[in-house]
Each structure stands twice: as structure tokens, then as C-alpha cells.
Design a protein around this nucleic acid. Structure first.
Length: 540
RNA sequence: GGCCCCAUCGUCUAGGCAGGUCUAGGACACCGGGUUUUCAACCCGGCAACAGGGGUUCGAAUCCCCUUGGGGCUACCA
């Protein structure tokens, strides 16, 4: 049976690159009827936080990537948090030491750094100088007592070339002489990634490791470790990386960086900005000098304050921008893979049915947000109505929209009258006017100038208000008939009637179709808003 | 610097492994037009690529080599 896994390090929200890796592992497991394991690689105490783990899980849930073993669901190979598997790793480390395949080291960071610099000036690859005689456990205990850092390194004695059989790239040959004795147990007693990953993959029965290309260079080290421990070697497949417009690998840093540049270029009041982000002025300055990156809510708040749009990087950023999980899964799958039939828009089931490792491609791909938008437009059209309502609600709640208070029937209605929308955010923006108090409507100066200040606009509004009051029954039909009739009467296009009305009730030139917009507000509130607009913009 | 990976329209890609059917197909973007009560959506049309050089071969986008370009890694991070 095929067993795959996704093993994120919880350093924050799940970003799209990680999501793509998770997706390919998940697709392979689902396609083959295998098993997909989620394992949390939280051995870096400095960077990992429990809340980050929750964020990653929530993001996976949102994407609809479910796991057969892991946090929340458990399984026979747990625990699924590496921080809870310390004894397991210790056992293997001791075994390697006893077999003289690994040894203790007591170097300080400074000493290592000095050796590394030295190698660099000599233009050589840094290789840790293995001692003639491996220290005894007793010596390690003494060193630790003296306060020296104690680590364990694998003794790399292999002389034959190491061949990584990559499912995508074929055989990649590495020279073992270039692999130094690497650390497998850190001085804090926790394993390094290399040891943990090898032990866990073996113990959890992982058969296929699909991971980013950045791990290709680690693979020979992992194979060495597997050999030393008498483990099996899983099938490896190293995915191409996804690059962003700035050239390099898509990175979480991109959002704070974009914001930082924007702040530096703007003439914003920094004290007010810091306040908006919930930061002290000092913290903001540290951010601007590039020394410290604030957390995500602060970044988001400052971007909102400045009115700038940051590139979406984390999965949750896409949720907040109004993308559907169906869109994300579909789009991510097509970054480096394509189905034999050339279909592009696919639902989850189709994706699974068409998935085939042989159709993965090797070159790096660029994350094209415009294409993503087109995909989203398409998926909004295709996702079943009740599912779309669910997504819409999650979106509204996540961004804290006043429309979140509406019931499902209303949300369904909003979605229907906004056919053709590109994102849920767009729909929310267009309909928000109906969920705020009449007096809270803010008139966009541009819209007022372009529409309400135009000759005759106010008169038309007055006429509309009158006719609305005269309406016997207020229905979508009677409203449409009235407005169309009015347009004919004035010998004008419907636009001449609809635009002033639109601006009067929404404050902007953008809204759902005018009949739907008025209908959404209701008779009374429409009249009230028209009257307010007339009052505000009636006199020159 | 060293090691490794990659290379088809602006972008994602099909074709490549099993050379001829490729005057290189699709999608997105872009441009032009249509439709229209705003924004979208929608319809029609158009632009646009085998990085360069050498081989192999009757024949190369496809196989080989070099160059160039891009990317990754080079931690007691994963």
C-alpha cells in the first residue's frame, strides 16, 4: 500500500508552496487507495508555536485535504508530533553511538563557525573534522556538566557514490566525500530534521516521499542514515519549486517585505500606522530597519490602514481575498502537473481520478495570480449552490463582514445576483451597502462627481423617490417596470436612471444589477437613502 | 565559490522518455470588436514560443555535448 505524508514545520500559517506539496502527497494516496499521514515536525523549539500548528491544521481543513493518521485523528504510529517522540529518537541515536556509527561532539557554535569560515577562505566545502577516537558517553556527560553543548554526528564513512533514484528526475549521483559528518542530535536533546525524518518515515511505513526540490541535496544524507540504521529507503520524488514575480522561491517574507517597501515609500504618519498595527513605535522602527518582522495580524492591519494589497502567500490569505478552496486545490495541482486529457478546470474527484505521477513536470513554475483569478471565476460558477453558501459564510466570518449576520437563504440570494463575480470578496464589497446603517453610507467623492453632480441627476432621484412611494406593490417586477418606464419617459438609456440611483443607495458606482440592489435594500431604506443623497448633494 | 536541478508563447503548460502526423496545440494574460443599467461575466477575432551553438540522423522541439540563463542547497531550520 502506498503511504505518503506531509510533514510541515509549524512556523506560522501554511503557505501555498507547502499546500502544493501536501496536495501532491494527498492526491497520490487518494488515487492509489493508500494512506496519507500528517506529521508535525516541531523540533525547532525556537521557531515552532502551538498556535501555528492549529493554523496549519485549519488551513488543510479549509483546502479539504484530510489525513488518515495524524493530529486530531490519531493512528497506530503516533505520536504525530516530533516533539513527543524524543525517546524514539534517543533509542536510535544510542544505537548508532554503540555501533560507532555516530559520535559525540562538544564544539561551541563559535568554534564551528571559525572552521566554516576557514574552509570558505580556502574555497573548500566545510567538512567537520572527525576525531580519531570517538568520545565515550562518560565524557559526554562530563562535558554537559561543564556546560558545553553536546551534539551527536553521524560518521559518514561511505566511499561509493550515492545514487538517489528520484521518481521525477531519474538517478542523481552524489559524491559521499562531499557530505560531512552532520549533526543528528542537537544540544537541546532533540533530533535534527535529518534524523527525525528518517526515523519517522521508517516507523510510519512511508513508501513515497514527495517533497520540494530544496530537499534533493538532503536525500543522500538521509539514505546514509537509513543504511546506518538498517532502514528501507522510500521512493523519493522532488518537486520543482514555485517562484514568485520577484524571482526567487515563493516565500513568506514577501508580504512583510512588500509592506515594508510601501511604508518606506509612503509619507504615512508612522505613529498612527504603528497604532493601527497594534505595535509600539519602537517595534515599527525595528520592522522598517529590517530587524524584526511583526506577526501577521499586525502586517494585515497596517496594510489595510495604508490601503495597499499585499500578495497572497499563505493559504489563509487566499481565503481572505475571497478564493474558493476548490480553486486553490485545482490551481496548485496544475503547478507542475497536468492531466492527460488537458482539462484545466477540475473538481477534487476529477483531480484524484486523473492524477498520475508520470505527468509531473520538472521545471520551476511561476505563481500567476491572474490565472488564479480566472480559475476562481470558473469555480464560483461551478461549485454547487449549497457548498458555495458554506464557503461564502466562512469567508464573511473570517473577514468580519457585517453580511455574516445574514441567513443562508440570503447568502444564496447574494451569490445568485452576483453571477460572474471573480471572488467572494467582490461579492461582499458589492453587497455590503445593504448590511450597514443608512446613515453609515459613505459617498465616494469620485462617484458623486461623476454621477450625482451631473445635470439632472438629482431631479431623477427625486422622481424615482416619488414613483417608489406611489408603487402599489413593491416587487422586483414592479420596480423594474417602473424604472424602465421612467427611462422611456425621459428618453434616456436605463443607465441614466440606474447610475444616480446606484450611487444614492450604495455610495459607489459598483453594485449588483440595479433592480437587485434596490430589492435587497427594500422600499423604505431605498427612499431614505435617496432622500439623504438629495439632501447632501442637492445644492451645488 | 562548491554541489545539484531545470530550460516550448508574457504566464501555466501539451508534445519529449518510444525522433517524421508540430507551417508547435490549449488555457490565462494582452490587443481589437460585439453585448450591456455599473463592476464583472459572456460572445467573436487577433498577437505570441521550441535560449544559443555544435553534433547524431534521410529527418530533431524531441537524443548527446558545450555555452548561456534561471532556480535550489551549502545550519545544532525544517
Amino acid at each position: 500500500m502506498v503511504v505518503t505524508r506531509f510533514a510541515p514545520s509549524p512556523t506560522g500559517y501554511l503557505h501555498v508552496g507547502g499546500a502544493r506539496t501536501a496536495l501532491f502527497n494527498w492526491l497520490l494516496a487518494r488515487k492509489t487507495g493508500g494512506k496519507f499521514i500528517l506529521r508535525i515536525e516541531d523540533t525547532d523549539l525556537k521557531r515552532n508555536t502551538p498556535s501555528a500548528t492549529q493554523q496549519v491544521l485549519a488551513d488543510l481543513h479549509w483546502l479539504g485535504i484530510d489525513w488518515d493518521e495524524g493530529p486530531e485523528v490519531g493512528g497506530p504510529n503516533g505520536p504525530y508530533f516530533q516533539s513527543q517522540r524524543k525517546e524514539i529518537y534517543d533509542y536510535y541515536v544510542q544505537k548508532l553511538i554503540a555501533e560507532k556509527k555516530a559520535y559525540y561532539c562538544f564544539d561551541t557554535a563559535e568554534e564551528i563557525e571559525r572552521l566554516r569560515k576557514e574552509a570558505q577562505t580556502n574555497k573548500q566545502t566545510f567538512l567537520y573534522p572527525r576525531p580519531q577516537r570517538f568520545p565515550e558517553p562518560e565524557e559526554a556527560r562530563r562535558a554537559a556538566a561543564e556546560g558545553r553543548p553536546v551534539t551527536v554526528r553521524l560518521a559518514v564513512t561511505e566511499t561509493e557514490p550515492i545514487v538517489v533514484k528520484d521518481l521525477l528526475r531519474g538517478e542523481v549521483v552524489f559524491n559521499p566525500a562531499e557530505i560531512g559528518d552532520f549533526v543528528i542530535l542537537k544540544s537541546d536533546g532533540l533530533p535534527t530534521y535529518h534524523l527525525a525524518v528518517v526515523v519517522d518515515d521508517e516507523l510510519m511505513g512511508v513508501t513515497h516521499v514527495i517533497r520540494g526540490q530544496e530537499h534533493l541535496m538532503n536525500t543522500p544524507s538521509h539514505m546514509l542514515l537509513q543504511k546506518a540504521l538498517g532502514f528501507r529507503t522510500p521512493q523519493y520524488l522532488h518537486l520543482s519549486v514555485t517562484v514568485s514575480e520577484s524571482g526567487g522561491k515563493l516565500s513568506k517574507r514577501e508580504r512583510p517585505e512588500t509592506l515594508r517597501k510601501a511604508i518606506l515609500q509612503s509619507d504615512a504618519d508612522l505613529d498612527a500606522l504603528a497604532w493601527a498595527g497594534g505595535l509600539s513605535r519602537q517595534e515599527l522602527d525595528l520592522f522598517l530597519s529590517g530587524e524584526k518582522i511583526p506577526d501577521m495580524p499586525a502586517i494585515d492591519a497596517m496594510a489595510t490602514y495604508l490601503g495597499i494589497h499585499l500578495p497572497e502567500i499563505n493559504v489563509v490569505d487566499f481565503l481572505k481575498s475571497g478564493y474558493l478552496p476548490e480553486t486553490m486545490v485545482n490551481f496548485l495541482a496544475l503547478l507542475g502537473w497536468s492531466p492527460a486529457d488537458g482539462q484545466e478546470i477540475m473538481d477534487r474527484q476529477t483531480l484524484i481520478a486523473s492524477f498520475d505521477l508520470n505527468r509531473l513536470n520538472k521545471s520551476n513554475s511561476f505563481f500567476d495570480r491572474k490565472k488564479l483569478l480566472a480559475f476562481n471565476t470558473e469555480h464560483i460558477k461551478r461549485v454547487p449552490a449549497d457548498m458555495l453558501v458554506k464557503h461564502f459564510r466562512v469567508f464573511l466570518e473570517t473577514v468580519g463582514s457585517p453580511a455574516a449576520a445574514a441567513d443562508d437563504a440570503m447568502l444564496g440570494h447574494l451569490l445568485r445576483i452576483n453571477e460572474g463575480a471573480r471572488t467572494l470578496a467582490q461579492i461582499e464589497e458589492k453587497c455590503r451597502f445593504a448590511f450597514v446603517a443608512d446613515e453609515a453610507i459613505e459617498y465616494d467623492p469620485e462617484a458623486v462627481k461623476k454621477v450625482l453632480r451631473k445635470e439632472g441627476a438629482i431631479d431623477i432621484l427625486k422622481t424615482i423617490a416619488q414613483r417608489l412611494q406611489m408603487l402599489e406593490t413593491f416587487t422586483a417586477e414592479s420596480l423594474e417596470a417602473m424604472l424602465r418606464h421612467l427611462a422611456e419617459e425621459k428618453q434616456a438609456g436605463l443607465g441614466k436612471i440606474a447610475q444616480p440611483l446606484r450611487v444614492a443607495i450604495t455610495g459607489t458606482t459598483i453594485s449588483p444589477p440595479i433592480f437587485d440592489a434596490v430589492n435587497l435594500l427594500g422600499l423604505e431604506r431605498t427612499i431614505k437613502r435617496i432622500e439623504r443623497a438629495v439632501q447632501l448633494f442637492g445644492q451645488a
